[in-house]
């Protein structure tokens, strides 16, 4: 879904800075995400991607800058160079609007899948038990896990746990969803089932900010891709632009390195389809393994394009396109 020019952005980040000790991690990040937009953030390990997401719900407190979500101010620079934060209860209110899915799932291990999903709506939104439960079952169904509702996290595969985690976040009816490398802690053959759920979510119009190393997914699903390095937005634009014909040398070098390390398109070409025993709530009639395969072939296509782009020795500048140092 393309961002609409006349609508205020749902997520608005200006000049976000953050350091840990002497380590300056974010050097002034600007980011605007419109309602319904899917933005992928890519970049080398340690470049600050996770930190950006964690600032968006104040799991990490920025040192400077301004964050506004759905018209509500989370933090902004005040007078005398100090940053002001929203009050405790306002922060909780905004967190209800911001769903987060973590790299390592962070499901509550002492609760079943269903209990994981109903806990927050009941506790935070005071939802009625029967209503919350019905909605949770609906959500578990939409991630293909209605038959796992009474299972505990440790009884499920990583791919299933992560889909429960997505359902848990969705149960709060968030305005925006944050995904932090949500496939990197699962076996590669289970990544597809998570990506498929995210793709369906994107198609339903969810606003998403996705930190990912899955270039196929970034290419296929996102409206916009941001390349981050050393806490700066080095390059951004349509997925096809940034991934297909990157302008900055750092972006090119990164993409080349990533795609060389992910030979999954060839390897998985003749592997069996993923978990067909499961009933998927949404996407009925569409063969999910086909969709996953199409994501994977996207990676192969991108690699070819990239190889072509980086071997033609056209001159490029190394200046960041925006938020210069």
């Amino acid at each position: 879904m393309a961002p609409l020019d006349n609508v205020a952005p749902l997520v608005k980040v200006e000049g976000l800075t953050k350091s840990f000790g002497d380590n300056q991690i974010l050097n002034g990040i600007d980011l605007e995400v419109a309602a319904g937009e899917v933005v992928s953030i890519i970049g080398p390990s340690g470049s600050g991607k996770t930190t950006i997401l964690r600032c968006l719900n104040l799991l990490e407190r920025p040192d400077g800058g301004r964050i506004e979500i759905d018209g509500q101010m989370l933090c902004e620079d005040g007078a005398n160079g100090r940053i002001n934060f929203a009050g405790k209860s306002e922060i909780r209110k905004i967190r209800e609007e911001v769903g987060m899915v973590f790299q390592r799932f962070n499901l509550f291990p002492h609760m079943t899948a269903l209990e994981n999903v109903v806990e927050a709506p009941m506790a935070v939104k005071g939802a009625d038990k029967a209503v919350a439960k019905a909605r949770a079952l609906e959500l578990l169904d939409s991630v293909g896990l209605s038959h796992r509702a009474d299972h505990y996290p440790l009884q499920m595969s990583g791919g299933q746990q992560q889909r429960v985690a997505i359902a848990r976040a969705l149960a709060m009816d968030p305005a925006v969803m944050l995904f932090d490398e949500v496939t990197s802690a699962v076996d590669p053959e289970l990544a597809g089932e998570i990506l498929l759920v995210m793709k369906q979510l994107a198609e339903q119009g969810m606003t998403m900010i996705v930190v990912t190393h899955e270039m196929g997914f970034a290419a296929d699903v996102s409206d916009r891709v941001l390349f981050i390095d050393h806490g700066l937005v080095i390059e951004q634009g349509k997925a096809s632009q940034v991934l297909g014909s990157p302008q900055q040398d750092r972006t090119k070098a990164f993409l080349k390195a990533v795609l060389e390390r992910t030979p999954m398109a060839e390897e998985n070409a003749d592997s069996p389809p993923v978990e067909t025993e499961e009933s998927w709530g949404t996407g009925a009639g569409v063969d999910e393994s086909e969709q996953i395969a199409s994501l994977e072939s996207e990676v192969a296509r991108l690699r070819q394009e990239l190889d072509a782009a980086t071997t033609t020795d056209e001159p490029t500048t190394d200046e960041p396109t925006e938020s210069g140092e």
């Binding site: 719900n57 799991l59 909780r92 209110k93 967190r95 209800e96 911001v98 769903g99 987060m100 973590f102 390592r104 962070n106 499901l107 509550f108 806990e119 927050a120 506790a123 935070v124 848990r168 976040a169 709060m172």
Partner: peptide, 20 residues
Amino acid sequence: GQFEAAEALGMTKLHYMRRI
């Protein structure tokens, strides 16, 4: 990660200490 997941869902500290 348990504390963070609970906070990200908007739970109060009292609630997540007790329940999570």
